[in-house]
Simulated assay, not measured.
Amino acid sequence: MDTATVVAFTIAIALLALTGFSIYTAFGPPSAELDDPFEDHED
């Protein structure tokens, strides 16, 4: 394979992995531990 193709696939896979992990953290089971700072300081 060409070097540019390998680099492009590596960047694409890293981006997809980061996006998947972010969605899992935001909406999956770990989201139960997240706090909303705006709800903590209601006036």
Rank of each mutant, 00 (worst) to 15 (best):
S31N: 05
T25P: 03
S31R: 12
F38L: 02
T5M: 00
F9W: 02
E33V: 11
I13V: 14
I11A: 11
L15Y: 07
F21N: 01
M1A: 07
G20I: 06
I11W: 09
H41T: 15
S22R: 12
A8Q: 15
A4I: 10
S22A: 09
I11V: 15
A8D: 08
F21V: 03
A26W: 07
T5S: 08
P29E: 10
D35S: 14
P29L: 15
A4H: 14
H41N: 09
A8F: 09
Y24N: 09
T25S: 13
G28L: 01
L18E: 08
V7S: 11
L15H: 06
A4N: 08
T5A: 00
M1D: 04
V7W: 06
P30K: 04
A32Y: 02
L16M: 15
D2A: 06
L18W: 06
D40I: 03
F27N: 11
D36K: 01
A32Q: 01
L34A: 15
A26M: 11
D2V: 08
E39H: 11
D2K: 01
T19I: 03
A14F: 06
D43N: 11
A14R: 03
M1V: 15
E42R: 11
P30D: 03
T3Q: 08
I11G: 03
A4L: 08
P37T: 13
V7F: 05
T5G: 00
F27Q: 00
Y24A: 06
D40Y: 03
A4T: 12
A12H: 03
H41Q: 07
T3E: 14
M1G: 15
E42G: 13
A8V: 11
A17R: 07
P30G: 03
V7D: 10
D2S: 03
A26L: 04
L16P: 01
T19E: 04
V7E: 10
L34I: 14
M1K: 04
D43A: 15
T19S: 00
F38G: 04
M1Y: 05
H41F: 12
F9N: 13
P29Q: 10
A14Y: 08
S22E: 00
D2Q: 01
P30F: 00
G20Q: 04
A32P: 00
D36N: 15
F21Y: 02
T10V: 07
S22C: 04
P29W: 00
L16K: 08
H41Y: 14
I13Q: 06
A32L: 07
T3R: 14
M1I: 08
L15Q: 03
L34H: 13
A14N: 11
T10G: 09
A17S: 12
L18M: 10
M1C: 01
L18Q: 05
D2H: 02
G28C: 03
D35I: 07
Y24K: 13
A32N: 07
T3V: 15
F21G: 01
P37E: 13
T5Y: 02
D36C: 08
F27L: 02
D2T: 09
F21W: 08
A14Q: 14
F38Y: 07
E33L: 10
T19P: 00
D35W: 09
F9M: 03
H41M: 13
E39N: 10
T3A: 10
M1Q: 07
T3F: 08
A8E: 13
F27A: 01
A12I: 05
I23K: 15
E42V: 12
Y24V: 01
H41E: 09
D35G: 10
E39S: 12
V7C: 04
T3N: 06
